[in-house]
């Protein structure tokens, strides 16, 4: 079987985990019709949410391993990996997949180390199943690597938005099996002891917006977003940003577009001061029209856009807003 570690949020299975399930299903078909099992780490005392179960059924999952343990109330990568490895060994997985999120990559690295096998991060395609050979992103996505996974179990994370989450031809009614791993104290040492204030997730507004005005490192600072925010308001759209912007804390994470952020498909995406790295492109390539504003005429965002303005976003963006207001009178 193929095991897929599934992450959930308030809406159910995350989009990238749905993608990993779709990817896993295709791998299972190529492997000669193997079953796909989902592994979901639960909270003590909580049942699997009905929404999660129905989404897993849509993805054609045959069995759900619901990993529960009294001591699994806060995230710990080692404990999650212990639960995952337990399922891999008891149910005999040929491959283990997860979405290429920070958590997905972290848990898989633990699992691969425990299983003493290789791991491939950020996989975008499967080249062969016997032996397992995959293509993955390296060098910030500028290069692809073909890699062999010779171990008894293939461990791989799927790059975000490397494929569309597609429902299985035949939905399933997966059976749920509770699974309680043997956890040691060492598995729980590196666990979350405190979480900061939950940042409200407003990414729904971003993914459904007709217009997204995006900005990247070119904005220069948290203050550098004023013009971009104003233009997005004038157009009744949403703000989208690059990962650099969220890592630097200039804007909240739910505004991130890309492989480890949201995938957007607006009618118009105005990308200001964003270079257009492949991981960003993975989140915005389905925009109908792309307008890039950048000082560098050779930036990939510019060369791959439909339209471009070459110039400083701090001058160009306010000028566009002014022109809109002038015409509105």
């Amino acid at each position: 079987m193929i095991a897929v570690l599934v992450e959930t949020d308030d809406d159910g299975v995350t989009v990238v985990s749905q993608e990993a399930l779709t990817f896993g299903r295709e791998l299972a078909v190529r492997g000669g019709g193997l079953p796909v099992h989902a592994v979901v780490v639960g909270r003590p005392g909580a049942d699997l949410a009905p929404a999660v179960l129905s989404q897993l059924g849509e993805q054609g999952v045959d069995r759900v391993h619901h990993v529960v343990h009294d001591r699994l109330s806060a995230y710990s990568a080692a404990a999650w990996a212990a639960g995952l490895v337990d399922v891999v060994q008891s149910a005999g997985a040929r491959a283990v997949l997860a979405a290429g999120t920070p958590r997905g990559n972290e848990v898989l690295a633990h699992a691969a180390t425990r299983l003493d096998v290789a791991m491939a991060a950020n996989v975008v395609g499967v080249d062969g199943v016997d032996p397992l050979s995959v293509t993955r992103q390296v060098v910030g996505g500028a290069v692809l690597e073909q890699m062999r996974l010779d171990g008894a179990v293939g461990v791989l994370s799927v790059a975000g938005h490397a494929c569309e989450p597609v429902a299985a031809e035949q939905a399933t009614a997966p059976e749920v099996a509770a699974s309680t791993p043997a956890l040691t104290d060492a598995d729980l040492v590196a666990r979350v002891v405190r979480t900061g204030q939950k940042v409200p997730d407003a990414s729904g507004a971003l993914t459904s917006a007709r217009v997204v005005v995006g900005a990247g490192r070119g904005a220069g600072s948290a203050d550098g977003f004023k013009g971009v925010v104003q233009l997005s308001e004038l157009l009744g759209g949403a703000v989208g940003v690059s990962r650099v912007v969220t890592s630097l804390g200039w804007r909240p994470h739910h505004e991130q577009v890309g492989q480890t952020g949201s995938r957007i498909s607006p009618d118009l995406y105005i990308a200001c001061g964003i270079s257009g790295a492949i991981q960003h492109w993975a989140g915005c390539s389905s925009a109908k029209t792309i307008l890039a504003i950048n000082t560098d005429a050779d930036a990939p965002m510019v060369t791959r856009a439909h339209y471009a303005v070459i110039g400083d976003l701090h001058e160009v963006v306010p000028a566009i807003s002014e022109e809109i207001q002038r015409r509105r009178g």
Partner: peptide
């Protein structure tokens, strides 16, 4: 690349609108 450059700097604002 099939990009159409609308202009350079703030002068391009009219073409953008």
């Amino acid at each position: 690349s099939a990009v159409q450059v609308l202009g350079h700097g703030p002068e391009a604002a009219a073409a953008v609108v």
